Amino acid sequence: MTGETPRDTLSAASRIGFLGDTHGDMHHILTVARTMAARGIEYLVVLGDFGFVWPGHNWSIDIDKLSRRLKTTGQTLAFVDGNHEAFDLLYKFPVTDDGLRWLRPNIVHIPRGSRTALASGATLAALGGANSVDIGHRVPGRSVWAEESITEADLTVLGHEEADVLIGHDAPLHLPTLDAWLAATDHGWPPDGLKYSAEGRAMFHRGFLQVRPRLYLGGHYHRHIDESVTYTTGETEFQTRVVILDEGGSASGTSQGILDVQTLELEFITRDGVQVGSA
């Protein structure tokens, strides 16, 4: 970081722009940033698989470039971790007094278990992480890291207090649209990978039940899903609107959403700003 003072505008933003997996795609993320800036969005959040902190190239140059471009649009970009992050590199950045991990003055990682109060007074909690279904094709320490998995310690930090909004990377269990797609499609994933991925999703689901959000926003599955589901934990029944954003990289994909923090309603747009749905 430079000597500039970081701007934590998440708690002050009246609208927040959310992005699905970006996987280190500079063109996509800069296009989205311009689109969001034109709509007055100053705070962006990537829902895991940010992918810019990655070995094999000078990723620091890419982060510098992204930071400079965001500075011209007056935006801050935050991200929760997914399963496509180089955790050994990411964790070299310390968690500062505000509980966040600042990579640059306007680029910040939101650790698992973080909570913040939005401008409306609603509470937002974060639980990144997911298990890679293709782990058998990855190399430990080069393309997959053990830290991708949600742990018991993460769930302890998250706590059991309710949150109005939960952001993360994986998805809760018993999501009919996602479950039907996973069951009906032959993805060619090996049994060990499917088992490992399911274990990670089950861990996320435990955290999801701990906070019982009204709205959940995630990525990971490279599809757009939006449905309300009723869950039960103990004697408590609650309903959550579960929104999964598609991965970036496509001009037509529903991989962006704008959240109104007062109403918790969403507007979905393409990366070029074409409205594709609202509620």
Rank of each mutant, 00 (worst) to 15 (best):
L44T: 01
L209Q: 12
V95E: 15
Y221T: 03
G257E: 05
V229F: 01
P140I: 09
L245P: 04
L66V: 11
F238T: 03
F204D: 00
G277R: 06
D226T: 10
V243W: 06
M1C: 12
G257R: 04
I150F: 01
M26Q: 10
E235N: 15
I167T: 04
E265H: 14
E85M: 09
V276W: 05
V133M: 12
V261T: 13
I107W: 08
T31H: 08
I61W: 14
T240H: 04
D97E: 14
L10Y: 06
G74P: 08
H169E: 07
E227D: 07
L266A: 07
I225T: 11
Y221F: 15
T72P: 05
I16Y: 03
G234F: 05
L90Q: 01
A202K: 13
M203T: 06
Y43Q: 15
W145T: 01
V276M: 14
H23W: 07
L166F: 05
S14Y: 11
G56L: 05
G129K: 05
N131P: 10
P176Q: 04
I41A: 02
H84G: 00
H169W: 03
E162T: 15
G48E: 03
E147T: 03
R223T: 11
V243E: 07
G3H: 15
L259R: 06
W54D: 10
G218T: 00
S132T: 10
S60F: 12
A117T: 15
M26C: 06
G24S: 08
A153Q: 13
L178Q: 01
T9I: 14
N58R: 15
L215W: 03
T233A: 12
L158E: 09
Q210F: 04
D179I: 00
D192C: 07
E161T: 14
R7I: 13
R112M: 06
S67W: 09
P190T: 10
F238W: 13
T151E: 03
F18N: 03
L66M: 12
Q275N: 12
D64W: 10
V80G: 00
L47G: 08
R15W: 05
G128N: 07
G248V: 03
L166T: 07
N131H: 09
N58Y: 13
D8P: 10
I107F: 09
L215I: 07
S149D: 06
V276Q: 14
D246E: 13
M36H: 07
L266G: 05
L124T: 08
V274Y: 10
A38F: 09
P191L: 04
T5I: 15
H205Y: 04
Y91G: 08
N58K: 14
T2F: 11
A12V: 10
Q275Y: 04
R271V: 12
R39P: 03
V157H: 01
H205W: 02
A117D: 12
A119E: 11
P176M: 01
R223C: 11
Q210L: 07
L166N: 06
D226I: 10
L66H: 09
R271A: 09
I29Q: 05
S60D: 12
S252M: 12
Q239G: 09
A202F: 03
I61E: 15
T123S: 13
F52L: 11
L127R: 02
L175S: 02
N83K: 10
G200P: 01
T72M: 14
F93V: 11
R201P: 03
R115H: 11
R206E: 12
